[in-house]
Design a binder for these strands. Structure first.
Lengths: 331, 331
DNA sequence: CTGAAAGCGCTAACAC
DNA sequence: GTGTTAGCGCTTTCAG
């Protein structure tokens, strides 16, 4: 089928292209009979407006660029779902870009994004993305950052306060006399780890204690499990906090192999989990992070910025909920 | 920053816009001094070619539409990674679309895709997608289908032969005298299940046996685990084959709760697994499905179609490898 | 209410 | 080698 343009439709309907344009854009000024004639021509010819041409004419592409870290979509999957659902409602398309730590050149991706003339960019990243933001800013591209608290002119963010989450968790345990609380490093999410550590420190300080139970995973270990297997030969803790369920599982397996019973001898908590956490035994106590909402809210925020609606809160903090499961005792 | 166009660059460099166009497209006819002047102007003004305008002028957007099922990116994540890596090499962008069974209107998505004038579409789907294909075909949009064997004019596919995988697996067990082999239904992947069932039947028939061990999950059960918990109260099998590791885990948990030891009393195998399979205990024996390659090869095929390179095999079958782990005995 | 015409930013003949 | 110009398909004043 030859790609049919607005001209052919106009000719078929015996009107000018301006009228066709009005019809496809739902302008109410077109008289009913003309409109119907045009609509019939559209259907007959199988005409589909060329979004690229529209984009050029309007300087508006109705597509949003999305940047996420590569690797496992296990955790970002829900975020993307939330994002796409809202995007669909507002008729936005999503252009997907991933970055791989140390491999992908972020600047190159930002370059591609600027050239593609997306209306806005949503960035999900553990990393600080100041450079990308300021570059994007120079080209007047609105930005929503997920998982980092930041804002500015045409820059919003949606995040969960991990620092507070860990702070409260530690406080609760400290109140119950549990003081040997270890925090496991997440090498893939350095920034998140930093916030978690800050939370732990703050809780301990509040109780007049010093915090120094950070389990760092040596660079030479490719998997944290390998390291932990060795680690638990001569280390014990009352509670270990991990970022992700996969890491908590590594802790769990390594501990058990060393005769540590969970949760009797040692408790385990993770921050973000996946659907797998409902299937494994024991199930891991975790925070319920509203991943879907993280995406949905971000996209909604983006549409607001693009339609110049007022954004009341440029740094939107979503709430979490601690869910006790089988790897923790009940106090 | 005002969005700078090719005109401004031309003016700044003291040349015509045609020359600027030549420079940004790497045309070799431009004399070095002129080229340098243009390049300096580009840098000075921070000019980024407008891909939308280029797209309109060339009738070519260098973006590919990707349609995947929603929900778990757990299994599609690797496919997407493969796809994106190759797309990046060939300078293609990816427009992401998801479909949710019974919720998203596929036709509407195809409509959006046609309007967006992508150069091609890659569809990952368990479902038969004939309707979408023929519609896309009418608009001359090349298609690559992942996970379904199908081909035609401007239609290619990349898949793994699950039927054969199950056929061979069953044959191996039958040869060892194991005859009570059950196959678990995957409600989310009806088509895949169908192929698996076909493979099992073929194997049994080859041995002169009839196959009738299909575990259907009643519609009223929201999770297969709930059903299986009950099922294993009065059912025993030598081997249960599931599609995904999550389903195999449901089998595992349900069986154990009913006093069935794995693998001693019952073995379990799944077709596709995730990174979680390396963390759980016992680890589930599975086929190694080349998910990343499924994506990478598809994208490569797409670039071939778009550049009119010859495609020697329009229905590309990728290989799998059975990997024995802790849920199976060694024969 | 509808049509004519001037762009949107870029590419690709075709001149010179 | 470089410039001129006619589109690519659509939107949007501005007339009528």
């Amino acid at each position: 089928m030859k790609r049919v343009t607005i001209y052919e439709v106009a000719k078929e309907a015996g009107v000018s292209l301006a009228t066709v344009s009005r019809v496809i854009n739902g302008s109410s000024v077109v008289k009913a009979p003309t409109r119907i004639r045009v609509e019939e021509a559209i259907k007959k010819l199988g005409y589909k407006p060329n979004a690229i041409a529209q984009g050029l004419a309007l300087s508006k592409t109705t597509t949003i660029g999305l940047i996420i870290p590569e690797a496992s979509f296990t955790y970002t999957g829900q975020v993307i779902n939330g994002l796409l659902d809202v995007a669909r409602i507002y008729n936005y398309n999503i252009m997907l870009h991933t970055i791989t730590e140390g491999i992908t050149d972020v600047d190159k991706i930002v370059d591609v994004i600027i050239k593609s003339r997306v209306d806005g960019v949503i960035i999900y990243s553990d990393k600080i993305v100041d450079d990308s933001i300021s570059l994007l800013n120079e080209y007047n591209i609105p930005i929503v950052v997920i998982s980092n608290k930041i804002s500015g002119d045409s820059v919003c963010s949606v995040y969960v306060d991990f620092e507070k989450a860990i702070y409260e968790l530690c406080l609760k345990y400290l109140a119950n006399g549990v003081k040997d609380i270890a925090l496991l490093e997440d090498r893939k999410n350095v920034n998140t780890t930093k916030f978690m550590l800050k939370g732990a420190k703050r809780a301990f300080e509040k109780e007049g204690l010093a915090y120094d139970n950070f389990i760092e995973i040596p660079k030479e270990y490719r998997s944290s499990y390998k390291f932990l297997s060795k680690y638990f030969k001569d280390h014990r803790h009352n509670l270990v906090i991990a970022n992700r369920d996969s890491q908590a599982m590594a802790v769990l397996n390594a501990a058990r192999e060393n005769g540590i019973r969970v949760p009797e001898d040692m408790e385990i908590v993770c921050v973000i989990d996946t659907k797998y956490n409902s299937m494994i035994r024991p199930t891991i106590s975790s925070f319920s992070i509203p991943s879907y909402d993280l995406g949905a809210v971000s996209m909604r925020l983006m549409t607001k910025m693009l339609q110049n609606e007022e954004v009341e809160d440029k740094e939107k903090c979503l709430s979490y909920l601690f869910t006790s499961r089988e790897t923790t005792k009940v106090y």
